[in-house]
Nucleic acid binder design. Structure first.
Lengths: 230, 230
DNA sequence: ACAAAAGTGTTGACCGTACACCCATGT
DNA sequence: ACATGGGTGTACGGTCAACACTTTTGT
C-alpha cells in the first residue's frame, strides 16, 4: 500500500423510483434497516462498498438484490459525507438513483428482503439523511424529465400516448394539456407507432407506441438535445 | 464502532476555474503531485479526507490551501470510485468544483504550493482520471452558465457589461450578439447600474454594474428560475 | 343511443435571433 | 478630426399556451 491516510466506511444508497401504471403514481423503494443504530427504521436500499468493487458495481449489486433487475437506468447522484451523519460511525454514502417499471414481480422480490414500495408523497419517517436524498432525487427526476427521455424507463417497452401523458402528469405533479403534449412528443419523431391498439382502458382503444432508442442515441451523438418542456 | 465492514481511502479533488480578465480566457488550477505513484505529474488540487472532517470542509481546506480563498463558490460535482482508478491503492475521490476571480495574488499563493494556472484548452497530461473530471466540469460550467448566475463568481464585484459579455463568450466558446446579450441580462433586473464608468478599456468608458445577489436569492426562494440562454 | 376515452387544429402572445448605426471621449 | 470601444431598436419567424369538438366502439 502506497498511501498512509485514514480510511472511511463507504456505502451506496439507491433511490429507486417506480411508476405504478394502475394507480398512476410514483413510488419509492424502501426497506427496514437490519443493523443498529436504527434497526427496523425505514431506509433507502443500500450496502457498504467492498474493497475491490467499483462504486457503480456496488450500486448494481444493491439494486439487483432488492429488485432482481439488471441493465436498468442507474446513475450516480451525489455523495453525502458529513462526519456525524451516521451515529453508528463515519460513513460516506454515495447516492445512486434508478428508474424502473413497477410490476407485481418487483413487489414480490422486494418483499422477500423486507422492502416495500411507498408513494412518493406518503413516505414514512426515514433514517439518517435519507429524506434529503429523496428530496434531491425528486428534483432530479423533474429536471431530467424535461431534458432526457427518462420517462420511457418507467413504462413498459410498449405504451400508449395517454399512458405516457399520465406519467408526465405524475412526474410534474400537474395536468399537461393533451394536444400540446402530443404535438411536442410526436414532433421529436422519436416514437414509433405500431399497428396495435390497447383497448384495456377504453372502447375505442389507443395506439401502441415504442421509443426509438437507437435513433435517440444516434441523434444525441450528433449533438441533439431533447427538450420536452411540456 | 458499530459497523464491521471494509474501509477505503477517501480523497477530495477540487476543479478550480479562474477567469483571466486580461487574457479573456478560462484557466484551471493544477499542481504537481508530491506522492508516488506519479509524483511530479500534473493533477487537480486535492487531499485525503480526515476521519472527523465533513467532505465539504475537506474541499474548503484544499481550496484555501492552494488559493488562500474562503467563502467562494464551491460545490460537489461527482464521485469517482473505480476500484482500479489509482494504482497506489483503493481511493474513492469526491470531485468538487469552484469558481474564483483570478488575479495576481492567487497566482502567487498557488505558486508557493507548486500549483499553476493552465488555459482550459491547453492542459498538460493529467494523472489518473483527472482529465475526465475536467471534461465533466467544463460541461457543467456551460450548463450552469445558462441557468444560474455563476458568471458573477468569476468576475470582481464590480464589472462592466462588455466584461460580462466577454466572460460568457469565453464560457460558451463563441461570440454572443451584443445587443441580445444586454437585452437578456438587463431584462432579469438583477444588475445594479452604478454611476461609475470604467475607462480602462475605452475612451468613452463603460458603466459599472453589480449583481444583486440579495434580490436573486429572494426571487429564487419564490421559485424563480434564471434562464440566461443567450 | 349513449357513455367513455382517444384523437385532432388554430390563434394570439411572447421570445429568440439577426442585423447596422450613432455616441462619447482621449489623443 | 479621428479612432476606439460603448451603447441602442426593430422586424421576422418560430415556439408555447390556451382552447372544444369529433371519432370510435362496447354495452
Amino acid at each position: 500500500m502506497t498511501y498512509n491516510h485514514p480510511k472511511l466506511l463507504v456505502a451506496i444508497d439507491c433511490l429507486v423510483f417506480g411508476y405504478d401504471i394502475k394507480e398512476n403514481n410514483l413510488k419509492v423503494l424502501l426497506f427496514q434497516r437490519k443493523v443498529d443504530p436504527f434497526a427496523g427504521s425505514w431506509s433507502l436500499i443500500g450496502d457498504f462498498v467492498n474493497e475491490d468493487e467499483n462504486l457503480s458495481d456496488g450500486a448494481k449489486r444493491v439494486l439487483e438484490k432488492f429488485t432482481g433487475l439488471k441493465n436498468v437506468f442507474l446513475e450516480q447522484l451525489a455523495t453525502y459525507g458529513k462526519a456525524d451523519r451516521d451515529p453508528g460511525g463515519r460513513v460516506v454514502s454515495i447516492l445512486y438513483w434508478s428508474l424502473i417499471k413497477l410490476d407485481d414481480l418487483h413487489r414480490d422480490i422486494a418483499n422477500e428482503h423486507g422492502a416495500k414500495w411507498f408513494d412518493l408523497n406518503k413516505l414514512p419517517e426515514l433514517v439518517l439523511d435519507h429524506q434529503d436524498m429523496i428530496t434531491l432525487g425528486a428534483r432530479q427526476l423533474i429536471q431530467n424529465a424535461k431534458t432526457r427521455p427518462i420517462g420511457f424507463e418507467l413504462l413498459a417497452e410498449e405504451f400508449t400516448l395517454p399512458q405516457l401523458k399520465q406519467l408526465y402528469d405524475a412526474i410534474y405533479g400537474k395536468i399537461i394539456d393533451d394536444r400540446n403534449f402530443r404535438k411536442k412528443i410526436l414532433s421529436t419523431d422519436l416514437l414509433i407507432k405500431t399497428e396495435k391498439k390497447d383497448k384495456s382502458t377504453s372502447k375505442k382503444g389507443a395506439f401502441v407506441y415504442r421509443f426509438d432508442a437507437e435513433k435517440y442515441d444516434y441523434l444525441r451523438n450528433q449533438g441533439y438535445h431533447l427538450d420536452l418542456n411540456v
